[in-house]
């Protein structure tokens, strides 16, 4: 096999079985090579192109200083456009100019260069191997087995001094139990997203879909924590004609109030907000991968890549007629994970 490492060309001569390589095609002259006028013209074109670049740069600088943003989208668009176009000409002048120059005025004679096999020649290899062998002998690593073992172990172990602190710190408190909890608990009021106004049951009309968040203080809603909590606590609430419901699952018969039913808005597929409600079919559609949930049937999946129904939030009304949670969710919301049911 070692012979095949040569860069060989089979049958360059040609015979009955193989044609002969006709060699590099004859060189064809360009206009500018023979006609001095064409040569001058090409040169002029290159000059014009590079001049365009210079003008482009000047216009770009002018645009930068002259066009001030006025805070409107249209104003920003104009300045972006003018500046960008000027930069385009500044760059394109150089680029097209250089290529035109190379194509029309520089030599277009093809050059042939030999290749050599990538592998190093045998004598070089021999010397290389010898040098390595000498080095190994000098180090004595071959004879000192214990030393070898310790060196390898030390080198293999020391990255742990950085990796362990790094990895164990980036996960925060590693309390993945938070996947199970949301802000909803017994008596939490349902409020409008994003205003936080409590919702009266009587305000919810049949057929409407309401985006709901749990009631929290205004300060809390300004805090960084809120976004992570909101990402778990989002609820979508709809009101149906109670006769439209399929029979409720066991234990969930009293989780609705007067045709109002509430589900987690976080898709059980990979966690997008399930935001589209289709009134006629009572279907909730997740815009990310089109999982479709049937609100009239316990938010069961009727189509798409999600497997589980959206978790249902048990609701009722308080003494003032405001909608409240009877309790938190009875299962983790959102996408599935390994220990979800443990």
């Amino acid at each position: 096999m070692s012979k095949t490492t040569d860069v060989t060309v089979p049958h360059p001569e040609g015979d009955l079985e193989h044609f002969q390589d006709p060699g590099i095609p004859e060189h064809r002259h360009r206009m500018a090579d023979t006609d001095p006028k064409a040569d001058k013209r090409a040169e002029r074109q290159v000059v014009v192109l590079f001049t365009i670049s210079v003008i482009g740069t000047i216009v770009a600088l002018w645009a930068y200083f002259a066009i001030r943003p006025d805070g409107t989208t249209a104003g920003v668009r104009t300045s972006t456009m003018v500046l960008g176009l000027a930069i385009f000409f500044a760059l394109a002048g150089i680029g097209v100019g250089a290529i035109h120059w190379a194509k029309t005025l520089m030599s277009d004679h093809e050059v042939v260069e030999d290749r050599h096999a990538t592998r190093s020649p045998d004598d070089v290899r021999e010397i290389a191997v010898q040098k390595l062998a000498d080095g190994i002998k000098d180090s004595g690593i071959g004879r000192r087995g214990v030393l070898k073992g310790v060196v390898v172990s030390a080198l293999a172990l020391f990255p742990l001094t950085i990796a362990v602190p790094l990895i164990s710190s980036v996960g925060g408190d590693w309390n993945v139990g938070t996947f199970r909890t949301t802000l909803w608990k017994k008596g939490t009021r349902l409020t409008y997203d994003p205003t936080g106004r409590p919702i009266k049951a009587s305000d919810v009309t049949i057929g409407s879909a309401v985006h709901v968040i749990p009631e929290v203080t205004d300060e809390y809603r300004q805090s960084g924590e809120w976004i992570s909590e909101k990402a778990k606590a989002l609820v979508l609430m709809v009101r149906l004609d109670p006769r439209d419901f399929k029979p409720f699952a066991k234990g969930k018969e009293n989780w609705t109030y007067d045709g109002i039913i509430a589900f987690s808005k976080i898709c059980t597929h990979v966690g997008c907000p399930v935001a589209l409600y289709e009134q006629q079919t009572h279907h909730l559609l997740c815009p990310c991968h089109q999982s479709t949930f049937d609100v009239a049937d316990g938010a069961k999946v009727v189509f798409g890549p999600a497997k589980r129904p959206l978790p249902q939030l048990p609701i009722t009304v308080d003494s003032e007629g405001y909608l409240v949670a009877q309790d938190g969710f009875d299962e983790p919301i959102g996408p599935s994970y390994w220990e979800r049911l443990r």
Partner: peptide, 16 residues
């Protein structure tokens, strides 16, 4: 024509 595994045919790096 003339292109083989043992050569390379083209333009020189500098200037073209």
């Amino acid at each position: 024509g003339g292109r083989k595994d043992g050569n390379v045919v083209g333009f020189p790096l500098f200037p073209v």
